[in-house]
Amino acid sequence: MLLYVIRRLLQLIPMLLGITLMAFVIIKLSPGDFLSEMRLNPLVSPETIERMRENFGLNQPLAVQYLRWLWNAVRLDFGYSFAFQVPVVWLIGSRLFNTVLLNVVGFAVAWALAIPLGIYAARRQYSLGDNALSFAAYLGISTPTFFSGLFLLFWAFKTGWLPIGGMTSVDFEFLPWWGKVLDVAHHMVIPVLVVGVFSIAGLMRQMRAALLEVLRQDYVRTARAKGLREPVVINKHAVRNAINPIITIFGFELGGLLGGSAILENVVGWPGLGKLLVDATLQKDLYVVMAALVFGSVMLVVGNLIADVMLAFADPRVRYD
């Protein structure tokens, strides 16, 4: 197993090389660079812009730029942001916690609700409850997050029950620690609801389908025939066998913890990585984009790896060696 994990992690290296090289080339091939906007400023001379391009190293050949970036990145130096003149790592770090917090809470809420709901729906297939849940799930899947986000913000504005966007109140710094926790929790209701509803819908359908598949199996009939109580049949025999695809999804979502909610963050003004990275991409703040890409890729691979390892524990049939 350890060998397998090591092998998987080693596979990361060529993959990261490929991803970063491709991203670098694509960013470079698209027209303009970070200094484009400055070129339309009457107060900035072309010589100054040329000097800046030199300072940023943007005048070097593409291969040199990439290799220089790579060499620094290998030593975990991701460079400075063009726009902010601060280390990229600091910039990402300043928003990382907020994004992770939102996604982890959303994730936990979604899983805590979706799994039992999926089981319920599978057990009472085509019942009124199942149909109602199916309908709600379709609604949830087909509502884009920006729309539900805007809708909830508008509702919050009309009722005044919840804050309209942001993560903290103006007087946050004056609050005692428990007040701060409550304040953030208050601000999180809308984004968590949006993130949660969206993934609950999908997850629940997955869980239902997987369980239905298993419930038709002979060993479930056998278990029931043995006279086992229904909760034992479901939880111990059926769910345990139906959980594999769900674990794979879990790993995938784990990888998406860093990104995934950029649009939502922008709509509700959550101070996470989303807006930062979207802006950086639009402005071609090269090193910020590259660092985010590297972090995102690593998270995705590690998330999937965790899922695979969990799969081995959950299902004795899965062996990697």
Partner: peptide, 10 residues
Amino acid sequence: AFNTLVNKLV
């Protein structure tokens, strides 16, 4: 796109 336009302009 803005960048394309700037490139054409200058």
